[in-house]
Design a protein around this nucleic acid. Structure first.
Lengths: 143, 143
DNA sequence: ACACTAATTATAAGAATTATAATGTAATAA
DNA sequence: TTATTACATTATAATTCTTATAATTAGTGT
């Protein structure tokens, strides 16, 4: 499953003329297998066992490459640092404002909002983002 | 129009026990009259003529106060710095990925997404955010 | 006007991200 | 296979945005 996603992602990198280095491969693999929508620092910490000499700049450089190709999305919240999400099927996120947990939430894409926005504003729409905020079940019971 | 909005906002501050200082008043007034969804630095620069000694910390402090009371919303995009938007009626934003322009886009609130998310995830939903991305008419013609 | 308390200022500190220069290494072709 | 070349990585410094601190200033209610 995630193995084939990794293969496809590597293929897209090669098509774009991007070299597959061990560090780059590891960052990509971590993103695909991660369920936590990691920050750059999460990735850095997770891989420092395997790559003790890896620089944090390498993580950022690779995240930028992946984002420019469209393999991943960068999510910015009110919090300090960006989070990164491997681009799979269309889904939205629901975020716990107490503990910060991010859960995937499958919902049909809001196409009609996009098309109405195009008509009203004259923009050519490329995509949208939506997140829902609230308190998760765990945090609710703790009160 | 904006004058009455300003009066109402000042009233809400007083109700909350927040003092009305000249700097605070100026930041609030600027936010209400601004159409550009300014950054903290935008506000700082716009007011430094009137308040040459004002500290940038004052801008941030006041933005935090306004946000905690609910007078304004903080918008975080992929860009470096947060933008601030005076809370009027419910609306969404459409953002030009070329020039960064942000335009208000009026659309009914997506209540049904929130309620479905509650059922599916077990969260207690407080709010959501949605933005649409694309290319504005100006930037389109420049290509 | 006084006293109380919050707000402002100036500055430093912190954190996230990007830039730079030297070194290393993957891909390509001789 | 080896040499070459261009890109990637590393280590570090610099930048930018935001928050914290301490001293001073100034609203607000009495």
């Amino acid at each position: 499953m995630s193995e084939s996603m990794l293969q496809e992602a590597v293929g897209r990198l090669k098509e774009s003329g991007v070299r597959i280095t061990p560090q780059r491969h590891a960052v990509l693999e971590y993103l695909i297998n991660s369920e936590i929508h990691p920050t750059a620092d999460d990735i850095y910490k997770a891989l420092e066992g395997k790559f003790p000499n890896m620089s944090v700049a390498t993580v950022y450089n690779n995240l930028r490459v992946f984002r420019e190709i469209g393999l991943i999305r960068e999510l910015t919240y009110g919090d300090a640092s960006s989070r990164f999400d491997y681009n799979t099927s269309n889904h939205y996120h629901i975020i716990c404002t107490t503990c910060g947990k991010i859960v995937d939430f499958h919902y049909p894409t809001l196409d009609e909002v996009e098309s109405l926005a195009e008509q009203v504003t004259g923009f050519e729409v490329s995509h949208h983002r939506m997140e829902i905020y609230g308190t998760c079940a765990d945090c609710k019971t703790k009160h």
